[in-house]
């Protein structure tokens, strides 16, 4: 799974431009399921199990990542841009990025610290005053290499570090994608449907249409969620902690989760000796927000990997959490599809 995760993190898939990620996923699942691509670009993959499902189960992850989109070019040949998804505005400055299908390197800078006023040095730079420098000598030069609407992504990154941690770009939500690829390639007890969806970061849009099409009874969303386990953040404000296992939420800003599924996840984790935690703040949101209100309603659960510095170019997760999450999800898939969901 980690090898697949690494390959996924090195791909660019800013919302609305998930093609490279989709192609990779298809190359991994082809032959292991019946898959098709819906009108928005999500993959709907039906995996046959040993038995027919007692309850129709959907497992879903999103393929897209936060990034930017080129909105203009100024006379100096610098690119103007907007954020795509909730990029943390504090992490944009001083970065190199990849621009457009040609993956041109660009850098995001401002005038030097020496020329900033005392006030300017103390104030976070609003994203709309920044620009991307690709080295073009003027507007015409820039437009011969870049088109308006080109997506811009952070530099590819996947690297183990420290005592069992991994840092990478787009771990949100390539973690979910990698786990679903593994599940599809393995033997499952019951028929299960998997969706790799587009446009989560711009409003849970791919999940909305894919879950309509699948029409499941139960859904599990696989995600990465904010961990704030830093030295000067205490107690409940840490939300969740790296090393304490997968995160199962009772509520976030998009969903009040099904209580039966929530309880079942913890009891299953306990029975099998898998560490598991919940979120201690009502924060964040994910595709569950769209899926649980699909058609007449879907009982939904979210299982997430705790992740530091989410929506930045350097997300940090713990390997053991990913392995525990994969273990728990496998059991949940078996039990939910097998009708043992309480």
């Amino acid at each position: 799974m980690l090898k697949i995760l690494e390959e996924l993190c090195l791909l660019s898939g800013v919302s609305g431009n998930e093609g490279a990620v989709r192609d990779y996923i298809i190359s991994r699942i082809d032959g292991f399921c019946d898959w098709r691509i819906d009108s928005l670009g999500s993959i709907i993959a039906a995996k046959q199990g040993k038995k027919r499902a007692i309850k129709k189960l959907l497992v879903s992850s999103h393929m897209d990542e936060v990034g930017f989109i080129v909105t203009g070019v100024n006379e100096a040949g610098l690119l103007l841009f907007s954020a795509v998804g909730g990029v943390d505005a504090r992490v944009v400055l001083g970065r190199s990025v990849l621009v457009g299908p040609g993956k041109l390197t660009g850098v995001i800078g401002t005038k030097a610290v020496h020329m900033q006023s005392a006030d300017e040095r103390e104030t976070a730079v609003p994203m709309d005053s920044l620009y991307i420098d690709i080295g073009a000598k003027d507007k015409e030069d820039a437009l011969s290499h870049v088109a308006l609407g080109d997506r811009v992504s952070f530099q590819p990154l996947y690297q183990p570090f420290g005592s069992g941690l991994i840092r990478g770009k787009a771990l949100d939500d390539r973690i979910g994608c990698a786990m679903m690829i593994e599940l599809i390639r393995s033997e499952l007890e019951y028929d299960t449907v998997f969706t790799f969806v587009v446009q989560e970061e711009v409003g849970l849009r791919g999940a909305r249409t894919a879950s309509y099409t699948v029409d499941p009874e139960i859904a599990i969303v696989l995600e990465a969620t904010t961990a704030a386990d830093l030295p000067d953040v205490s107690g409940e404000k840490q939300v969740c902690k790296l090393g304490n296992g997968p995160v199962v939420s009772f509520m976030d800003r998009s969903t009040s989760y099904d209580n039966g599924l929530y309880q079942k996840a913890f009891s299953l984790a306990k029975e099998n000796g898998i560490p598991c935690q919940t979120k201690t703040m009502i924060a964040g949101g994910n595709d569950a927000g769209a899926i649980h209100v699909s058609r007449g309603g879907v009982r939904t659960l979210a299982v997430s990997a705790p992740c530091r510095y989410i929506h930045s170019p350097v997300c940090v997760v713990k390997e053991s959490d990913l392995l525990h999450m994969a273990e728990l999800v496998k059991l949940l898939v078996r039990d939910f599809a097998g009708g043992k969901d309480e």
Partner: peptide
């Protein structure tokens, strides 16, 4: 990595 508190905090 230089750490940061998430925006919601």
């Amino acid at each position: 990595v230089i750490a940061s508190k998430p925006p919601h905090l």
